[in-house]
Amino acid sequence: MKVIVFSSNSNLVDSIKAKNMEVAVYTPPQMNKIINNSNDLLLVYIDSSSFNDKLQKKISFLTSKEKVYFGVLDPDNTIKDVAELYFAGAVDYISKNQLKSEFNEKRFKRVFQYLEHFRIDYRQEIEIQKTITKNIKHITAEKGWQEIVPGAEYTFSIMFIELDGKYDMEKIFGKKNLEVALSVFRKYLERNISHFGGRIWMWFQFGGIALFPFNGRECESVYCGFRIMLYKLMHDVEESLFPNFISFRIALLLGNVTYQDNDTGNVISDSINTIFHLGRKHAATGNFYVTEEILQYAPKPLQAFFTPADNFEGIPIYKMRRPVLPS
């Protein structure tokens, strides 16, 4: 977990004591950019004296961010009701007197311990990171689906696909029209996915999760996602019942899943959690993301169409360059 301090007060910055821990310091105007571009777990301290009347607004901003935990530094003891900070989601408060002696490594570790014990969201994030960073042993299925037995664990290419803008669709198109248009969209996906040996495993109105058994040598799923993106505009014109050009996100990773034929609603899987996080929270609209690991198993010529797209929860990910209409 990274520690970041936002302050324009040089005295305060000098008072930070953390020899064995990296603490980054930025000025208040840099805050939004730094936070928005980060995918790491962050412990953020904001200096109330550097933000003045913008403090409340910045607290609201930090509260809205996942994987960001924050404390408030109060070098002038201006905060009258400290409890209000905790009600707003703060995990630490350091007053004028404490700043001199307690703003140090020991304090940070105590905050981490508090998060570990009392914040379930923090524990979940840590679990996800552990899962991702540890080397998952591949459990291959050489013969594909005919080898897959329900109840056993296998390595799959796990593909998340979901239409963008789902919240407004029913209002715009009407319930019945939307149902028909969505079924056409699903058929487009099914046709492409099954062509590459995959199956839609879970479906939720606007998208779903598809699984492709992994043979240990190559991942056709990357080619599948590439084709879905390449032919998207053709689908828009020739098949899609949506009156506009549609947009969807695809995320793809290699992960282990205990396969089950039905009752997929109760699946507990770190890989599935991760793909949901990547697809729903990280992926930008209209884009196709793959992990660095799965990209290595893609056909070499296609790898050149993917560019690094920073890290997601500690794992390097790549984004596909998309075909576009002329402008």
Binding site: R321, R322, P323, V324, L325, P326
Partner: peptide
């Protein structure tokens, strides 16, 4: 005219 074009 049409040709396959890619984003930068």
């Amino acid at each position: 005219r049409y040709s396959l074009q890619w984003e930068n």
